[in-house]
Simulated assay, not measured.
Amino acid sequence: MPTRHVLLAVLVAVLWGLNFLAIHASLQHFPPIFLVALRFALLAVPTILLVPRPQAPLRWLVGYGLGFGTLQFFGLYLGMAAGFPAGLASLVLQASAPFTVVLGVLLLRERLSPRGALGVLVAVAGLAVVGVTRAEATSWLPFLLVVLGALGWALGNLASRLAAPPKPLHLTLWMSVVPPLPMLALSLALEGPGEVWRALAASGSAAAVPAWVGLAYTVLLGTVVGSGIWVWLMKQHPAGVVAPFSMLVPVVGVLAAWWVLGERPALLELAGGVLVVGGVLLAARAARPVPPAHDQLTASPAPEVVSPARSPRA
């Protein structure tokens, strides 16, 4: 890759790593489920008006929106709202990669090599270390919610692969049309109209400014700018060249949370995070697709299990 392309890839990793700080800021004011609905509504309206609908089967577009947009951010935002550290969330969310590998084997008949299986086991071991450490410090629930978010991202990966759109960024943007209504319904049912109204009523105060800044960051810089650059890079270079730069995201996330929020992950948590990232790299390098014999969905390339190439990161 030319130096300027390397710098662009690093820039995207930084933008996505800082996303977790932006989410943290927004969660200080808005209820988590309503925040997901609001985030994607702000993307959905201009997308419907300005972006052509992707040339992809509707079921995979909806599946991508439900997996990546709805389930991932439902788990991530609830987990962070329940106290899971922002920096550590950027590490645990990388579990989406081994989840994608396993789901690819189970649902798409992809072959998993011994090296790939080792990578999955290493990543799972890392998750277990983080989970046990967090459970001893607080509880299992916030950790499990973030892991649920990683599973949602993995399901979105499979749906985006099967969608195989000629313009992946259009799929990424149109995915935002799916989450707002189900997330708003969940917010009203679980968080209550009163909680939502209180957040909106106070949203014009000075205290709400960081929350709006964080929301603007996730929508504009994290999604539109970050995903736009990433998709362009993936078109210019082989996926195996670009995808490893996504491993910088948790590094940026942990360092930024340490510097800005004063988060100090325990040694075992960091060790577990290193195992997760190492397992992701092993599993991603070893994954090889095997076309199913019974249909023609196999014309698309294999999912980029370590790369949020078709999606706004966090």
Rank of each mutant, 00 (worst) to 15 (best):
V196K: 13
W174K: 05
L184Y: 00
Y217Q: 06
M175K: 09
S176V: 03
L169Q: 06
M175P: 03
N157V: 09
E191H: 05
A163N: 02
L158G: 01
V213Q: 05
L145R: 03
L186Q: 02
V209T: 14
P166H: 09
K167Q: 15
L190P: 01
M183L: 15
V219L: 12
L151R: 04
V213S: 05
A207Q: 14
G156H: 08
L151A: 14
S205T: 15
L162Y: 10
L145Y: 08
A207Y: 05
P166I: 11
A199K: 11
G152R: 00
A159Y: 07
R198K: 15
S187A: 15
L181T: 03
W212A: 02
G156D: 08
V213N: 01
V147E: 01
L190D: 03
S160R: 12
A185I: 10
S203T: 15
L173T: 06
S176G: 04
S176Y: 08
A185R: 00
A208G: 11
L186D: 00
A185F: 04
L184A: 12
V209K: 10
T172G: 13
G156Q: 09
L155V: 11
A164V: 05
V177C: 11
P168H: 12
T172N: 10
G194E: 13
L200C: 05
G192W: 08
